[in-house]
Design a protein around this nucleic acid. Structure first.
Lengths: 201, 201
DNA sequence: GCGAAATCTTTACACCGTCAAGATACTAGG
DNA sequence: CCTAGTATCTTGACGGTGTAAAGATTTCGC
């Protein structure tokens, strides 16, 4: 395989190159031709592995979910009680968005459009949701979160974290708050209403 | 003014054309040249009113915030008690995102990048935030929301609504929930944890 | 009323996504 | 092993895109 003409693992190399471009130059620089160049390959080579640019973006988004899952899993495994796990997951979620804002944005940009189906992306998103749901249901069992439909509770918690992070990435959090509180503090305050043991500032 | 050569109100016509394109063909069709064509003008004419494409997008985003403000204000003015106003604002927020998903996405796409400043966009976003904050503080006074830093509470409520809407637009709400509950129900359940009179399902 | 400024058109350029045709390398069947 | 087919990659081309420069047309300040 791995000679000068055939790359060997071009598909994954393109995904890696795309993520690197997102990280270094942002989403407006994510170009099929730049991705190909960074992978050391001609500008049309990606078409051997991806139907179009959207398919590559879907793969990058799926990889985003995969990396997010790893971060969430790692953050959660190192804690014992349910509340600490929930908070660790929230912090890790926000941290991923802060560390890789453009990769995060692409992951949640609504890649999956009605007609086209990207099974890997869907699978990774469900896997991530399932991880959060386990933590949420544990919190419900432990009396930390209100009881009720676990899927609904998970959506609530997820949406709250996600919305906070989105507003942060869109620079819509008032500067006064950012000056007064640290990001983990803000996120902690933000999740407080969900907990049965409220300790609001 | 309004002869064949000089348009008369091209700047606003371009913004309107852009919004119409967003509404009809989506964000990937939002092109300077298409906007110019829809406004009946040559493809470089926009540069007399906007420094670049991003500046036009910023204007469209500011107009998005303006329209959102109108919807929120209208929804809120027709209610008397604070809780009903809060819920009406949340529903109107979600409805705007459902009615004009691409305009909504662009409005919250993080147009304002560190270096460049778009004062109108910033002003409109602050105006919207202020409106929500009034409703939130009224709820706090009425014992409907927990007391505490009103700016913080507003960010919390806003972020929760916004995150739910974002996940909805990104097709990340599990289909099982969408099948079981209506959108207003889901949003209502979602905001329940913030209320002091919890009535969860 | 005239020169300056604002507005719009035309032309041009580099870059983009995508397709078609051809070159190269791997792989399976004889 | 050898050959045919297939997968992979290159090259070249096309229309569309953002943007800059130069010129045409209209408006506006003095």
């Amino acid at each position: 395989m791995n000679n000068s003409y055939h790359h060997g693992d071009l598909k994954n190399a393109l995904i890696r190159a795309g993520i690197e471009i997102l990280s270094k130059d942002g989403v407006q620089a994510l170009t099929l031709r730049q991705v190909a160049k960074k992978a050391g390959v001609s500008h049309a080579a990606p078409y051997a592995h991806f139907a179009d640019k959207q398919a590559l973006i879907a793969a990058i988004a799926a990889e985003g979910y995969r990396q997010l899952y790893e971060k969430l899993a790692a953050a959660q495994e190192s804690r014992v009680d349910a509340l600490a796990r929930l908070m660790a997951v929230a912090q890790a979620y926000a941290q991923f968005a802060i560390d890789e804002p453009d990769h995060f944005k692409i992951t949640f940009s609504g890649v999956v459009e009605a007609e086209k189906d990207y099974p890997d992306y869907v699978e990774q998103s469900k896997r991530c949701f399932a991880l959060v749901m386990v933590v949420v249901t544990d919190c419900q069992s432990g009396g930390i979160l209100e009881p009720g439909d676990p899927e609904l509770a998970t959506v609530s918690v997820w949406a709250s974290i996600h919305g906070f992070v989105q507003l942060m990435l869109a620079n819509q959090i008032p500067g006064a708050l950012l000056a007064q509180y640290s990001m983990p503090e803000l996120l902690s305050f933000h999740l407080n209403p969900f907990l049965r043991t409220n300790t609001q500032p």
